[in-house]
Design a protein around this nucleic acid. Structure first.
Length: 268
DNA sequence: CCAGACGTTGTT
DNA sequence: GTCTGG
DNA sequence: CCAGACGTTGTT
DNA sequence: GTCTGG
């Protein structure tokens, strides 16, 4: 996924407060990879918080943090029963604010063609449905917050790329999803369905995104027409010093007003 | 009772 | 932590 | 998700 | 083929 929106901006959009920014400082990213820190929105006792969690849910019984790597996604089907996810589904739901996400298309050959998907409404932030947990490292005693992205069937827009997609929560579902007091599993599960068609724009991008060492706004640039099989940089080594764009105009978005309006229209 | 799993993706 | 398999 | 490793002994 | 790292 991509996360360019700053925690402060996310806090405005979701009516939350930034917490725990120190542990995993925010950097805009166009290539958020498993085990990387991700910005999440969740409900604490004293209000909504924007935090940074490790991507890949580490269950409480894990012996090592790496065990979370397998849990980067949680299938919506069975999420209420699975030992790894059910407690989080009942008590620790969150939203992962993403500017866009990637899907890899199997082309028949070995190469996987990445596509970038983002709201067709400029300035909207996607609200990916997620779960979170905390795990205490038995060796160091350090508490590690972690998160997972819930997936469901792909909608028709994505069907040619892949058969799954992240769950996108419409704005009118945010409050119930984040509220740990809400226990109506039927209601919660009803949110976990494919997004309506037409809310996402998609275009093929360079295979540079396939290497986690690459990052920067160039990763989401559309390939020229007919270049879908282009190697990009997938068969070349990643840059030794990957670009972290600090250029003007990146990592910023316009007023939250526009964001919330955009989001509000996504599922009308 | 203890040991071992606990997950998703995609491929065959 | 909790469930399943043996 | 994709990329990259997948191994030991011994030497510098 | 399968696992680990990011």
């Amino acid at each position: 996924m991509t996360q360019q929106t700053s925690p402060d901006e996310v806090a405005r959009i979701f009516d939350a407060e930034v917490r725990d920014a120190g542990d995993a400082p925010f950097e805009p990213s166009w290539n958020v990879a498993p085990t990387d820190p991700v910005t999440v929105v969740l409900q604490r006792d004293d209000g909504r918080a924007v935090e940074r969690h490790r991507w890949g849910l580490v269950p409480p019984w894990a012996k090592a943090v790496k065990e979370g790597a397998r849990n980067i996604n949680a299938r919506a089907e069975g999420i209420a029963e699975s030992p790894t996810f059910r407690t989080s589904f009942r008590k620790r739901r969150c939203i992962i604010p993403a500017d866009g996400f990637y899907e890899w298309q199997r082309t028949g050959g070995k190469r996987r063609q990445p596509w970038y998907l983002a709201p067709d409404t400029d300035d909207a932030v996607l609200a990916l449905a997620g779960l979170w947990s905390v795990w205490k490292d038995p060796v160091s005693g350090v508490w590690v917050p972690s998160t997972t992205v819930i997936t469901t069937d792909a909608n028709d827009d994505l069907a040619t790329l892949h058969d799954r997609m992240p769950v996108l929560l419409p704005q009118d579902a945010w409050a119930a999803w984040l509220d740990p007091e809400v226990q109506d599993q039927g209601l919660l599960l009803s949110f976990l369905r494919p997004a309506p068609d037409g809310v996402l724009e998609m275009h093929a991008v360079s295979t540079r995104v396939n290497d986690v060492r690459n990052d920067g706004p160039e990763l989401i640039e559309a390939l020229a027409e007919g270049d879908a099989d282009d190697a990009g940089a997938g068969d070349r080594p990643a840059a030794e010093e990957p670009a972290r764009s600090t250029g003007a105009g990146t990592g910023r978005r316009r007023a939250a007003q526009a964001d919330t309006e955009g989001q509000g229209t996504l599922f009308d």
